[in-house]
């Protein structure tokens, strides 16, 4: 795969945004530590609040996490599909009709997986 797609790699190195990339990497470290501290706080808060006797309803949290995983992974899949479709279209504009057909079908299939999750959440969370 690597040697066939040389065009893609040179484009990304010469991209104007690539110059900015080194600077942003240093900032990444700071962000990482801030986010880790926030995550620790998130876990710490329920531990302190556990003194009360009211049971916590975890259903909405579970539904939200499930939907987030489904939507995020579906977004990744749709992004990959669209990327390859646009690449194929740029290489061979003549094959537009077939590529469009397969793209729409594929996107609908990927999207329906997220919607299955939504339906399951609606069926279970009541």
């Amino acid at each position: 795969m690597g040697c066939k797609r040389e065009g893609a790699s040179t484009v990304s190195l010469n991209h104007p945004l690539a110059a900015n990339f080194q600077g942003s990497r240093r900032n990444m470290r700071k962000f990482q530590s801030v986010f880790m501290a926030l995550a620790a706080l998130c876990f710490a808060v329920p531990a302190f609040a556990d003194g009360g006797s009211a049971p916590i309803n975890l259903v909405p949290i579970g539904a939200g996490i499930g939907m987030a995983i489904a939507a995020g992974l579906c977004g990744l899949g749709q992004g990959r599909a669209t990327a390859s479709a646009t690449e194929a279209l740029a290489r061979n504009p003549g094959a537009r009709a077939g590529i469009q057909l397969l793209l729409v079908l594929g996107l609908a299939f990927i999207e329906s997986l997220t919607l299955f999750t939504l339906v399951i959440i609606f069926a279970k969370v009541k």
Partner: peptide, 13 residues
Amino acid sequence: MSLTIRLYANMFA
């Protein structure tokens, strides 16, 4: 099932 849920869930959503 998949035809049903795809259309229903899209419209519903």
